[in-house]
Simulated scan of single mutants.
Amino acid sequence: MGKPKRLLVGLGSTPLASIQAQGLRPDIYDQYINRVGPDSWVSWNLPRGAYIGVVAKNADAMGAVPMFTLYQMATRGDGDLSGLSDPVFMRQYWDNVRLLFQQLRLYNKPALVNFEPDFWGYAQRKQADPTRLLVHVGVSNPDCGNLPSDMTGMARCLLQMARAQAPKAMVGFPPSGFPDLASTELAYMRHIGAGFADFAVMQTLDRDAGCFEALYTADNALCTRRSKVAYYWDETNLTSPNFNEHFAMARRYFEGLQLPLLWWQTPQGQPSTKQVGKAAPFRDNRTQYFLTHAAQMVAAGGFGVVFSPGHTSQTTIDSDGGQFKRLATQYLSQPAALP
């Protein structure tokens, strides 16, 4: 990717102006591309699909590699898989994917694509055998007429289209990390062919820990999910959940898929010993721990980490009191080398 051989640090879902105002130079710049239908990402700019070029241009302005998080399968609702068996929906889905890779071919530089966060976990919950869940692949997409109409065919089709249409793009699948799938998800991801991608995407939490602790309902933040384990991890690694446990899990994916890891959408809240329950910033310690323990991320198999809010109500570089800039600058003064 033309980047230094150290753990890369990126930002996502963050306005270009905010990044430039702080003089930041992220290695990776990530944005969502979502939905299927008339209001999908393909219509955000003209001509159709031009949004890819807009993001790529902004990334270039910062010296960053553009990254796109494909999030189309949540169009009908998070976890709603009814589109898989709908030929009209899937035809639109594949048309958008084709346009993505055509635009990346025009860009003609390295770019990263993250395939459908959480979707693979929802699909596994519905049917543990990926060959037994119907997906309109070849019947809705002439580019993949050689592939089976199931989850293995869907994953292989995403890879096949990327390789054929955008050879400079690097792609990765994100294990969901759902606790109930902890013992089986790696085997599932291997079965669908995630090991044939270029990297694997690791996740920690889609909101700041403090948002869930406060059961925050304003701004449609959806922070009312209950959990049997704490959302805020122990940075001393003495009690569970903690960071050592997370990196051990990540290492299993690194070894099981034989792919380098990219942490994505890492919360940006500020550390606190108290559950203050206050928005912007909510409390969280993942940004602080990751940027002060980068060698642990490399040892787990990581090549990069992207920090970004999972919702507009969450902490960002505009509301973190300068935390990201301070810690990123400190990290870059003594970066963690890649093997």
Rank of each mutant, 00 (worst) to 15 (best):
S18P: 00
S18C: 06
Q20I: 02
D30Y: 11
G37V: 07
P38Q: 12
W44P: 02
N45T: 05
R48D: 14
G49A: 08
A50M: 07
V55H: 13
V55Y: 04
K57F: 05
D60P: 03
P66S: 11
M67I: 05
L70V: 13
Y71I: 12
M73N: 02
L84W: 01
F89D: 11
Q92H: 03
F115Y: 09
A123L: 05
R125L: 09
K126D: 11
Q127E: 15
V139H: 13
S140V: 03
C144W: 03
G145T: 10
D150A: 10
A164K: 15
G177M: 12
G177Q: 15
T184K: 10
A194C: 12
G195E: 13
F199N: 12
V201T: 08
M202G: 03
G210I: 14
C211K: 02
A214R: 12
R225T: 06
T239W: 05
F243W: 03
H246L: 12
A248M: 01
A248N: 14
M249Y: 15
G256W: 02
Q258G: 00
L261M: 06
P271A: 13
H293D: 02
A294P: 14
Q296L: 10
M297R: 03
M297Y: 02
F303I: 01
G304C: 00
F307C: 06
T315C: 09
D320R: 10
F324M: 05
F324Y: 11
K325F: 07
A337T: 11
